[in-house]
């Protein structure tokens, strides 16, 4: 056995041996910061992601669909909770992370800055957005950081249920009236490219990738995951009988994968930098809920303190 001297080498050796890093283990400051950034972005995405879908809860077209949608949006709140808790194991408070979101310092997935205009968008989000999220997240179940990996196991199970639910909404629309099928096609047209953007910049442009791969926070590159997503989704669109809005999309027999067109990176950066169709509205809705909830949170704390004081006063008397 080679003698390992520095903490950093020991840490990397553990990762190389596919062992998990746990909250009390020593870790490089950059590893901790990278994880806090990634996990909190992920948590924020779940919470902001409740808004575009929540937008359709009151208008869902049947009781079954309404219950399915409410439960789905609620699952996202639950994912946000586990993820904030996973981030807290790295020594940061949920409040602090939420403040960073509200002042615009922390990012969340750009996909949620697009509007949900029709009921078919609820289907398309489940099918494409949750589908892309699963591609990204399944490898995270083997992430080197234990609490994150464990949270992702549960998140992925629920996400895959959401994806099936979304696809089933699309299928029902595509088997429905011509107006419903047109609604489904329109939703695919609007969500396809933003869904591909969810995998992030091309590998050559991706700033955090190399280090994250070495630390086994990330297991596959952005482009690899994007390719898998396209290969998985194309036959699903064919089955629905709707067309992916990319004239360059075709099967390459030799490479055994699909070729596809170039993403509009100007649009990608525009939305990332806060200028998408709903960036302002999404953040404003989060800030409003938080500010209007301040008195409720304050009262809960005040009441809990009163209770504690009462108990300690009583025990002093006793």
């Amino acid at each position: 056995m080679t003698e390992i001297t520095s903490l950093e080498e020991r840490f990397q050796a553990k990762i190389d041996a596919d062992q998990r890093i746990e909250p009390r283990d020593w870790m490089p400051e950059k590893y901790r910061k990278t994880l806090i950034r990634q996990i909190s972005q992920h948590a924020h995405s779940e919470i902001v992601g409740m808004l575009p879908e929540g937008n359709w809860i009151t208008r869902a077209p049947s009781l079954r669909r309404k219950l399915g949608l409410i439960a789905k949006v609620q699952d996202e709140a639950g994912h946000g909770l586990y993820l904030y808790s996973a981030a807290e194991t790295l020594g940061v408070e949920r409040d602090e992370l939420i403040d960073q979101l509200h002042i615009g310092k922390a990012k969340y997935s750009s996909i949620f800055n697009y509007p949900t205009l029709t009921w078919a968008d609820i289907g398309a989000i489940g099918w494409l957005v949750d589908g892309a999220a699963i591609m990204n997240q399944v490898p995270l179940c083997r992430c080197s950081y234990g609490p994150y990996a464990r949270a992702m196991v549960r998140v992925c199970k629920e996400e895959s249920f959401h994806q099936r639910q979304g696809y089933e909404i699309m299928l029902t629309l595509c088997e429905g009236s011509p107006a419903q099928k047109a609604m489904a096609q329109d939703a695919l047209n609007r969500w396809w490219w933003p869904a591909l953007m969810m995998f992030g910049p091309n590998d050559a442009e991706s700033t955090h990738s190399a280090q994250s791969m070495a630390w086994k926070i990330k297991r596959f590159s952005n482009d690899e995951l994007r390719q898998r997503f396209v290969d998985m989704t194309k036959p699903q669109a064919d089955y629905l009988g709707i067309t992916i809005p990319d004239p360059d999309l075709k099967w390459d027999e030799e490479k055994q994968k699909h070729d596809f067109g170039e993403i509009d990176w100007d649009e990608f950066w525009k939305v990332v930098k806060g200028h998408g169709p709903c960036n302002k509205e999404r953040l404003a809705a989060r800030v409003k809920a938080h500010e209007e909830g301040q008195w409720v949170r304050d009262a809960a704390v005040a009441y809990a303190n009163k209770k504690v004081n009462k108990i300690s006063n009583n025990s002093q008397v006793a």
Binding site: I47, M50, G54, K66, I70, A77, L81, K288, A289
Partner: peptide, 20 residues
């Protein structure tokens, strides 16, 4: 159901949604 995503704190958002 209108409140889903707009609750005063995440835990109560989930609780209200449950009742819904």
């Amino acid at each position: 159901g209108e409140l889903c995503g707009h609750g005063p704190i995440l835990e109560q958002d989930i609780a209200i949604t449950n009742i819904s």
